[in-house]
Amino acid sequence: MDARPATDGLTFRDATDADVNDLVALIESAYRGDSSRTGWTTEADILEGQRTDAAGVLEVIKAPDGALLTVERDGRIIACCQLEHRGDHAYFGMFAVSPALQGASLGKVIIAEAERRARDLWGATQMHMTVITVREDLIAWYERRGYRRTGRTTPFPYGEERFGIPQRDDLEFELLVKGL
């Protein structure tokens, strides 16, 4: 993928091995612990423990059919998202925006760039993602961006603490899809 400056002071580029620690810190701050409560994407009430680790982030960076799109402002990483080419569609995941910057329309800009890349670089006709079904506010945000619920669910990986420690027993993922 390409490094591309955006008109609003953002730079989009593929993550490198040197970014791993900063990306882990960003992702953890957006989803876990008290720092995540600054923003609105927190999972702190439904999951404890880690969201990801260095090995997980490095795996996404090294994936042959994907990238971890990194967003910088003034040379500092402020957001990221995973993009993976899966035939006629792309997968969108590991989306994190610094909690202090959430709610300022940054997410809309990033997801639009991710969709553009999936369409233009891979010829993807759809974007897929999975969201924890109890995250109704987050699902509603994606629906406002054109994603639709499919009703297709997969179980949460209970017992695999590298994805977090569930605080409830009704967690599952639902597939959301958008035509590109």
Rank of each mutant, 00 (worst) to 15 (best):
L83S: 00
Q126P: 14
E115D: 10
R149M: 09
V134K: 07
G56T: 10
R32L: 05
E161T: 09
I78W: 14
R37Q: 05
T16D: 15
I111M: 04
L47K: 04
R135S: 03
G146K: 03
L106T: 13
E84N: 11
M94P: 10
Y91M: 07
Q50D: 06
S29V: 08
V177W: 12
D88L: 14
T42Q: 05
E113P: 14
G151Y: 00
E48L: 07
V71N: 07
E84A: 14
T41M: 12
V109C: 09
P5V: 01
R148M: 02
R117W: 00
I61K: 01
G179V: 09
I139L: 11
A3C: 10
R13P: 08
R76Q: 09
S35M: 03
T125M: 13
E160M: 15
T154G: 00
G103E: 11
K178N: 00
S35N: 04
Q82H: 13
W40F: 07
G146W: 06
L175E: 01
L23M: 11
R116A: 01
D88Y: 13
M94A: 12
E172Y: 00
P99K: 03
E172V: 02
A63G: 14
I77F: 14
D169R: 13
Q167L: 15
S29A: 13
G66W: 13
A15I: 07
F95V: 15
S35F: 08
A15R: 03
R168Y: 07
G56C: 15
V131R: 00
A112Y: 06
L171F: 09
E143Q: 13
P5E: 05
E136D: 10
L176G: 05
A100Q: 14
D65A: 15
L180N: 11
T42K: 00
S36G: 02
V60T: 03
Q82D: 07
L47R: 06
E113M: 02
F92Y: 08
R148E: 05
I46W: 04
T125N: 15
M127S: 10
P155I: 08
A44S: 11
F173Q: 00
L171V: 05
T125A: 14
L180T: 09
T41D: 09
P99R: 06
Q82S: 08
A79P: 13
F95H: 12
C80L: 11
W122L: 01
R135M: 08
E115K: 13
R4Q: 04
G39S: 03
A114K: 02
A6K: 01
H128Y: 11
R37S: 04
R135P: 07
W40Y: 04
V24L: 13
D34R: 13
V177Y: 10
G49H: 00
T16Y: 14
G87H: 08
Y31Q: 00
A100G: 12
M127V: 06
E28T: 01
P166D: 15
T154Q: 04
T38P: 09
G107L: 03
E48N: 09
E59R: 06
R117D: 02
H128C: 02
A55F: 12
T38H: 07
T41N: 11
A15M: 06
V71Y: 04
E84Y: 12
A63Y: 14
I132R: 01
S105R: 12
S29I: 09
